Measured scan of single mutants.
Amino acid sequence: MMAYMNPGPHYSVNALALSGPSVDLMHQAVPYPSAPRKQRRERTTFTRSQLEELEALFAKTQYPDVYAREEVALKINLPESRVQVWFKNRRAKCRQQRQQQKQQQQPPGGQAKARPAKRKAGTSPRPSTDVCPDPLGISDSYSPPLPGPSGSPTTAVATVSIWSPASESPLPEAQRAGLVASGPSLTSAPYAMTYAPASAFCSSPSAYGSPSSYFSGLDPYLSPMVPQLGGPALSPLSGPSVGPSLAQSPTSLSGQSYGAYSPVDSLEFKDPTGTWKFTYNPMDPLDYKDQSAWKFQIL
């Protein structure tokens, strides 16, 4: 009977010793046993002879290597770790002494450095960015050149030099007046198309007034536009458009034309069986010896 009264063996659950049927240790109110408190290391007290050895090595170098620390530790009968900690504390003490010396050398008012006064946003004049500046400075420094007289040679050079070769001289006033084509001369031969040399188009003023001019072949195509416009036809070669000034309004060009419109200028042929003959000019830059190549039959 006494065997049943004795408590059973101890069981360990999660490293906790349980005594038989008792489960009081598993209750929430019972805390787990805490780790033992780490003991504080005792402070090391250095003797005068030990301090002399350490100070002598510190005077040589503030960062001794492990071999120098072990050698000193053997002399003063201390572990190497204590020597390492002593050098660490000695360097910190040396830095603190240097900072105190710097503070003593500075004057009393030198510690508080005078800061520059901050400028207020409204006091300083700042350039306004509302208006974009002129990058080319046209509004201040540029002045347009004065327009020359209508009959000045410089204007003629600016007008005619675009179309004339570089080897030719500017046309005088008398020749510029001949550039304007007359109405009857352009409409006299509506079906004849003559190819003149390129030099005649640039230099010869008579080429624009003769039936064999460069633009005589364009007349049949330009004249039928007159009834559609409801007024006189516009002429690209009329009046002052080739003269001194090219800047004319469309209203000033509306009254200039080749001449009176005639039914002869239409595109319809009077004789459907007729042929169109292209007159060959020996001055043509295209060297075609066979003139029969310039004739064709309209079917």
Rank of each mutant, 00 (worst) to 15 (best):
P7F: 14
H10Y: 10
H10G: 01
S12K: 07
V13A: 01
N14R: 13
A15R: 08
S19H: 05
P21I: 13
Q28T: 03
V30I: 09
A35D: 07
A35L: 11
P36R: 10
R48E: 12
S49F: 09
L51C: 12
F58H: 11
A59V: 05
A59L: 05
K60Q: 05
T61A: 11
Q62G: 09
P64W: 14
Y67L: 07
A68P: 15
L78G: 14
R82I: 06
R82T: 12
Q84D: 15
W86H: 14
N89W: 15
A92R: 14
K93Y: 14
R95T: 14
Q101C: 05
K102N: 03
P107L: 07
P108A: 04
G109W: 02
P116N: 03
S124H: 07
S124R: 05
P125F: 06
T129R: 09
T129I: 07
C132I: 09
I138K: 09
D140I: 14
P147M: 03
G148W: 10
P149R: 09
S150L: 08
G151H: 10
S152G: 08
T154C: 08
V157G: 04
A158G: 01
T159R: 05
S161H: 10
I162H: 00
A166V: 08
S167P: 04
E168Q: 05
P170K: 06
L171K: 06
A174K: 12
L179A: 04
A181T: 07
L186G: 01
T187K: 08
T187H: 10
S188G: 06
A189E: 06
P190R: 12
A192T: 08
T194E: 00
Y195M: 02
A196Q: 02
P197I: 14
A198Q: 01
S199P: 05
S199R: 10
A200M: 12
S203H: 08
S203L: 14
S210Y: 12
F215I: 04
D219I: 11
Y221P: 01
Y221D: 01
P224M: 14
V226F: 14
V226T: 04
P227F: 14
L229G: 04
L229K: 03
L229C: 03
G230L: 12
G230D: 03
S235F: 13
S235T: 09
S238T: 05
V242D: 02
L246N: 01
A247L: 10
S252I: 10
Q256V: 10
G259S: 11
Y261R: 11
S262K: 12
D265R: 14
E268N: 05
W276N: 00
W276M: 00
F278T: 00
Y280T: 00
M283K: 15
P285Q: 06
D287M: 15
Y288H: 02
K289C: 07
K289L: 12
D290M: 14
Q291N: 03
K295G: 04
K295V: 15
F296R: 00
I298E: 00
